[in-house]
C-alpha cells in the first residue's frame, strides 16, 4: 500500500498510494451524501424515526478503516452510517434499511441505529452508548481462541468514555492482550454535555495509561493521520501485542439528533468547524501535492452523488416487510 515518500509530502500522506486515497475520498463523499440525503428524506417525510448524522466526522470513520481487511470486524455506534460505508457496506441496502424495507441489511428490523453488515464484518451499530465496547472484548477473545488473523475495531463517542462499560472493556482487553482497537470519536458533545463538563481528563486517550495500552489523541479530521495511526494500532493488534486506544478529535456539524436545537453551542463554533471540513481538506492537500488531480476529484464526487441517488431509488422501490413476518427473527432456529 505504501509508496516512496514524495518531496514536500508529510509521511502520513505519502504512506498511501493514489488508489487508496481515491477510494478513501470516494467513501468520504458517499458518507457525506448519504447523510445529506437521509436528512432530506426525513424532511420530506419519506423516512421516520430519528437519525444521528456524522457530517463532519468522515475522516475518522474512513481513515481508521483503511488498514482493515474485509474479514476484520468493526462494532459501531448510534452515529454509525459512516462506519458502515467505510467498512464496505453498500448504500442501497443501507437506505433500504433506513426506509424500513425488506431489502435492507436487517430486513427493516433494525433501522438507522442498528444497521449491521455481518458478512462485511460490521457487527452492528448500537443504540446504547458504550454498548459495543464489551462485545468487542468478546470478539477479540473469539479471534484469539480460533487463532484467526483478524482484528476488531470498536467505535464509540466521547460520551461512552464515562460509561462503566468503557473501563471494564479496556481493562479486559489489556489483561488478555486482545486484538482490539478502541477508536473514540470525540466530537466534543455527549448530546449537549461537553467533554470539559463531563470528563475528568483533558484527553480521553489519557485514560489508556490506566489500562496499560498505547493511547493517541489525534486530529480526527486529518484523514492521512487517522489512517497512519490506525495502521500502527491494527498492526500491533495483529501481532498479538494487544489493544490500543485512538482518540480522534472531530466535530458533528449537525445536532445530536432531530430534536437538537443547538442550545449548548454557538453558531460561530459550528461555522469554525465547517471550515475544517475533512473532505475539502483532503482534496486541498491532494491538489497541493499533485495527487489524483482536479478532474479525478470532481469525477469521484459526481460518482458518489450518482450512487446515493440510485440507492434512494432502490430503497423507495423495495417492498415493505410482510405483516405475517412480525415475530420472525425473534429466535434463531
Amino acid at each position: 500500500m505504501s509508496t516512496l515518500p514524495r518531496a514536500n509530502q508529510r509521511p502520513e500522506l505519502s504512506a498511501f498510494d493514489d488508489g487508496t486515497l481515491a477510494e478513501a475520498l470516494r467513501k468520504m463523499h458517499l458518507i457525506r451524501k448519504f447523510e445529506e440525503a437521509a436528512e432530506d428524506c426525513y424532511m420530506r417525510g419519506l423516512i421516520h424515526g430519528t437519525m444521528h448524522l456524522s457530517i463532519g466526522q468522515e475522516a475518522s470513520a474512513v481513515g481508521s478503516a483503511i488498514p482493515l481487511a474485509k474479514s476484520d470486524y468493526v462494532l459501531s455506534t448510534h452515529r454509525g452510517h459512516g462506519h458502515c460505508i467505510a467498512k464496505g457496506a453498500s448504500p442501497d441496502r443501507m437506505f433500504a434499511e433506513f426506509f424500513g424495507k425488506e431489502t435492507g441489511y436487517c430486513n427493516g428490523r433494525g433501522g438507522s441505529m442498528h444497521i449491521a453488515d455481518v458478512e462485511g464484518g460490521n457487527l452492528g451499530a448500537n443504540g446504547i452508548v458504550g454498548g459495543g465496547l464489551p462485545i468487542a472484548v468478546g470478539v477479540g477473545m473469539s479471534i484469539k481462541a480460533q487463532k484467526l488473523d483478524r482484528v476488531c475495531m470498536v467505535y464509540f463517542g466521547d460520551g461512552a468514555n464515562n460509561e462503566g462499560a468503557f473501563h471494564e472493556s479496556l481493562n479486559m482487553a489489556s489483561i488478555w492482550k486482545l486484538p482490539v482497537v478502541f477508536v473514540c470519536e470525540n466530537n466534543n458533545y455527549g448530546m449537549s454535555t461537553s467533554v470539559a463538563r463531563s470528563t475528568a481528563v483533558a484527553n480521553i486517550a489519557d485514560r489508556a495509561l490506566a489500562y496499560s495500552m498505547p493511547g493517541d489523541t489525534i486530529d480526527g479530521n486529518d484523514l492521512p493521520l487517522v489512517a497512519a495511526t490506525a495502521r500502527i494500532a491494527v498492526e500491533r493488534a495483529r501481532r498479538g501485542e494487544g489493544p490500543s486506544l485512538i482518540e480522534c478529535k472531530t466535530y458533528r456539524i449537525r445536532g445530536h439528533s432531530k430534536s437538537d436545537r443547538n442550545l449548548y453551542r454557538t453558531k460561530e463554533e459550528i461555522e469554525a468547524w465547517k471550515a475544517k471540513c475533512p473532505i475539502r481538506r483532503l482534496e486541498g492537500e491532494l491538489l497541493n501535492h499533485d495527487r489524483l488531480g482536479s478532474a479525478r476529484l470532481a469525477e469521484i464526487e459526481a460518482d458518489a452523488a450518482r450512487e446515493i441517488a440510485a440507492a434512494i431509488e432502490f430503497a423507495k422501490s423495495s417492498a415493505e416487510p410482510d405483516l405475517a413476518g412480525l415475530t420472525r427473527y425473534v429466535y434463531a432456529e
Partner: peptide, 19 residues
C-alpha cells in the same frame, strides 16, 4: 475480572463470532 457488564458483553461478542 469482577466486571459483570463487561463479561456479559464479552460472551455476546464471542457468541456472535463463532464461540
Amino acid at each position: 475480572p469482577i466486571s459483570e457488564l463487561g463479561i456479559a458483553g464479552a460472551a455476546v461478542g464471542a457468541a456472535i463470532t463463532g464461540m
